[in-house]
Design a protein around this nucleic acid. Structure first.
Lengths: 224, 224
DNA sequence: TAGATTGTTAATCGATTAACAATC
DNA sequence: TAGATTGTTAATCGATTAACAATC
């Protein structure tokens, strides 16, 4: 070691193994929410957004937002805020979700039609490549510009298109059997809009969406 | 102070001001999720559920679940688990959501019909007291057994029925104006299923539901 | 008894918040 | 310059996890 004057070397907090550290669960969730607000703000023509404004829309503390973002670079401009377009790109890079992903939708009832015709998924690069229904009467009808297919074709299409994500808008009574079939076919992320609880292997992620749950705890804070 | 032998007095962690402490945000959210899984388990006839099983369905760590519950009492039975019916009642009491609450639904499109005909809200004591739509052609049609009303009647009905919660299943372009009207009429919790960002006063809670956001971070953990 | 699961402790990690200098 | 907002520090709080005695 050299004695005497030591030149200060900036310490870069990078992983030694040349790979970015995996984000914590909470951080990935928050970044996704920032992204959603930012893409909406883009639509209304906003050019910049402050951490305070982002905080109002996401209900995440503004210091937390600044800290989350500054961990990846100096994205903001003091006195001004964050450039919306640039920040969208930066968060997409962090989340590695810049590309397009194929998803399959199951169920062509009211909910399936609502999901299939909305651009809530398309806005974030998710293509609904196919819509399936078990009811022969629904097969062939249009949902979001696509003809509904019989559920028997699902396995083949999942394999061909490399579908990893399935959205289940089916009755609770049909959900578990369908989930089993999809897991066997290669699906790894299931969005469950049925009220049924799903049993799946550990390597599969189930996200059960239930507005009543959110309402329950929103109401608690209103009542107390 | 008395010297010598000291009789041990159990320390009860109660609030001195005779009121239960307000739950933390995270705890209220977790309890709501436990409640949802438990009510589903009730439907399938389960009598007991272990913290480990609850953990699988809620993705909350099982130690966390036991700790959350043991803060309110010894609800479980060692070697057995938790009694489903009893735990449902106990969590409802903690969340103060045993009663019935009136909610109003706006929008009678695909999503509105899906929400209005599901019993996802009814299961947790939420009554959809009215369904509204701005489109005269939809007024009078049935959604979940109810006749759709013109949105002009909303103010009167909100006041009469003491509606605090509104569910917005309307196009993004209509959402902000409707939110303004509802806040003026007395609504304090808004469930926003439109893609639009809503500006509301601080005393109003907006919950924006966006499946694409959840999908974004689920996908991150799949990809990395 | 043997097996299972709770209730609880302790240690660690991530989230929250206030405060403020730096700087656009 | 003056006002606004970022980036960052420090202190606190809540969440996570492993471990295990208690006990059904």
């Amino acid at each position: 070691m050299a004695s005497g004057e030591i030149e200060e070397v900036p310490v870069l907090l990078v992983d030694t193994d040349d790979e970015p550290a995996r984000l914590s669960l909470g951080l990935a969730a928050r970044l996704s929410r920032y992204l959603q607000v930012l893409t909406q703000a883009q639509k209304t023509g906003r050019e910049t957004l402050s951490s305070h404004e982002l905080s109002e829309y996401t209900r995440v503390n503004s210091t937390q937002i600044r800290r989350d973002l500054s961990g990846f670079g100096k994205f903001g401009k003091r006195g001004v805020g964050y450039n919306v377009d640039a920040l969208v790109d930066q968060i997409r890079e962090i989340l590695q979700t810049g590309g397009q992903h194929n998803i399959a939708l199951f169920g062509a009832g009211h909910l399936g039609k609502a999901i299939g015709s909305s651009d809530i998924f398309a806005d974030h690069g998710f293509n609904v490549v196919a819509v399936f229904d078990a009811d022969p009467k629904k097969v062939g009808t249009k949902v979001g510009g696509q003809a509904v297919r019989p559920v028997e074709e699902a396995d083949r299409l999942i394999a061909e298109e490399g579908v990893v994500v399935a959205v289940l808008a089916v009755p609770g009574t049909a959900a578990q059997a369908l989930a089993d079939q999809l897991v066997a076919a290669g699906v790894r992320i299931i969005f469950n809009y049925s009220e049924s609880l799903l049993d799946v292997p550990a390597e599969v992620t189930v996200h059960t969406s239930n507005p009543a749950v959110d309402l329950l705890h929103a109401l608690y804070f209103y009542l107390s």
